[in-house]
């Protein structure tokens, strides 16, 4: 068997694989790794760009907001609601048994210590991202006195917690810090 002799002398490694198999696998692996390094920038270009990320932090002056009022500001292209709760509204938020909530959180957990009247949340419904009503003058605040989403009827209470409707979560509280009693930095 001349062919077999040739294979033994020319083509087989000591453990019995053909040298050609090794070259096939090495070539394939190298090509796959090369393709992956090219594909990654093509995928990653869709992630937020540097200028989008640069606008990720804003300052907000709360001094003009009277109790019962709220302002809408834009942060990362999304609205943020900053609301000065009245004593009646904080009392209503505290009176709710936490265990009865879909997303159980107390008002204390959703505000900063000693600043319980300042309710700062994203104005983005956790259902499908609409802007709930209730921050503007004369807007529908829903059955629980907080916010009402006109898209699919989610109702939030005075701590912006989901009480009724399809939204799964409370309105998100962004990261923010008080720089002074009337100044916050969001982001």
């Amino acid at each position: 068997m001349a062919t077999n002799d040739n294979l033994v002398t020319d083509d087989l490694t000591p453990t019995g694989e053909r040298r050609r198999d090794f070259i096939f696998v090495a070539t394939g692996a190298f090509a796959a790794a090369g393709a992956a390094t090219v594909v990654w920038p093509l995928i990653n270009q869709m992630s937020p760009s540097a200028d989008v990320l640069a606008l990720a932090q804003i300052d907000l002056d709360l001094s003009a907001i009277q109790p019962g009022q709220a302002v809408k500001v834009s942060w990362r292209g999304k609205p943020v609601f900053a609301r000065n709760l009245t004593p009646a509204e904080t009392a209503a938020a505290k009176a709710v048994p936490v265990a009865s909530l879909r997303d159980p959180q107390t008002l204390e957990q959703r505000t900063k210590p000693g600043k319980e009247n300042w309710l700062i949340t994203l104005g983005v419904c956790t259902h499908l991202g609409c802007v709930p009503l209730g921050a503007g003058e004369g807007e529908n605040k829903g059955a629980f006195g907080g916010y009402f989403c006109p898209c699919h009827g989610s109702q939030y209470d005075t701590a912006a917690r989901i009480r009724q409707g399809p939204a799964p979560k409370n309105l998100e509280v962004p990261d923010y810090t008080f720089k002074s009693p009337t100044q916050v930095t969001i982001g």
Binding site: M46, S47, P48, S49, V52, R76, G77, K78, V124, G129
Partner: peptide
């Protein structure tokens, strides 16, 4: 979601 939009909400990207 962020990757599809290229941001945190629909925008120029």
């Amino acid at each position: 979601h962020t990757w599809l939009l290229g941001g945190f909400a629909p925008d120029n990207a």
